Amino acid sequence: MYTRPLALYLSVLTLLLTQACSFNPPLQQKGEAVVQGIWQQDTSAVNKVLVNFQTYNFKFSCDSFYVEQHNFSKVNYGADTCMRSGKWTEYAKGTYELRHDTLTLKGQFCNPNFSLKKEGGCFRFGNYEESFKIKKEADSVYQYLNLSATNAFKIHRTKNITCIPKPL
């Protein structure tokens, strides 16, 4: 008496479970050739008049990014053991997506050796997410505008990297 509805529910449940799951690819993705390499931010005179600012060093390899964010502040927000007289560096790694003129970075805050950072200690930990509007200015020079900030900066490629996908 209940076998027909039970069979229907089990069929629908099986269909949903098989459609919701997929295997991860065996290799990392190739990423975007236009960003592959090591990039360094050009420092500008405008940073010297700001109270707080950051400079970035990026490494894009296949579909992954690594970033060093050097922070500078003329205001002491915390313990000097962390802020080091207004100069400190944060690190993050993860994957990126380039869609039209927007570069989105999603990953985790890390230690200087890019191992995952544990909760606590100095500075931020956990999820890292930033988006940049990018515009090509020359062969290896781009202008980046952090979508959560107001100042654009120039960044130039210091080394090319050819993507060789690694097993995951």
Rank of each mutant, 00 (worst) to 15 (best):
L103M: 11
E119M: 11
C62K: 10
N57A: 14
N47D: 15
S61H: 14
N71K: 06
W88E: 07
K106D: 10
A45M: 12
C110Q: 05
L98M: 03
T43E: 13
T55V: 13
G37Q: 01
F109D: 10
E90K: 08
R84H: 13
K59V: 10
A92S: 14
H70A: 09
K48R: 12
F65L: 09
C110D: 12
V49G: 06
E119C: 01
E68P: 03
V49F: 13
Y77I: 11
E68L: 09
F109Q: 04
A92P: 05
V67L: 10
D63H: 00
Q41L: 05
D80P: 02
S115M: 00
T89F: 00
Q108G: 00
T43M: 07
N57Y: 08
K59F: 02
D101V: 02
K118T: 13
H70G: 05
H100T: 15
W88G: 02
N71S: 14
T102I: 08
C82A: 12
K93C: 08
A92T: 07
Y56S: 11
V35A: 07
S115C: 00
D42M: 07
K118E: 14
Y56N: 14
Q69N: 15
C62M: 03
C110S: 11
L103D: 03
Q54D: 15
V49S: 15
K106V: 13
W39V: 02
N113P: 13
V75C: 02
G86Y: 06
F53M: 05
V51E: 15
C62R: 03
V46N: 11
L105M: 08
F109M: 05
G86S: 05
K87Q: 13
S115H: 00
N111M: 11
Q41S: 04
H70Y: 01
D101P: 00
L103C: 09
K93N: 09
D101L: 08
H100G: 10
G120W: 00
T55L: 02
T43Y: 05
A92H: 08
T43I: 06
K87G: 05
Q41P: 02
D101G: 04
L50P: 00
G121S: 06
L98Y: 02
T55F: 03
Q41K: 02
F53C: 03
N47F: 15
Q36W: 06
V49D: 14
L50V: 05
N76P: 08
Q40Y: 03
M83S: 11
L50E: 15
L103G: 02
S44L: 09
N57L: 15
N71H: 13
Q54V: 10
K87F: 13
L105Q: 06
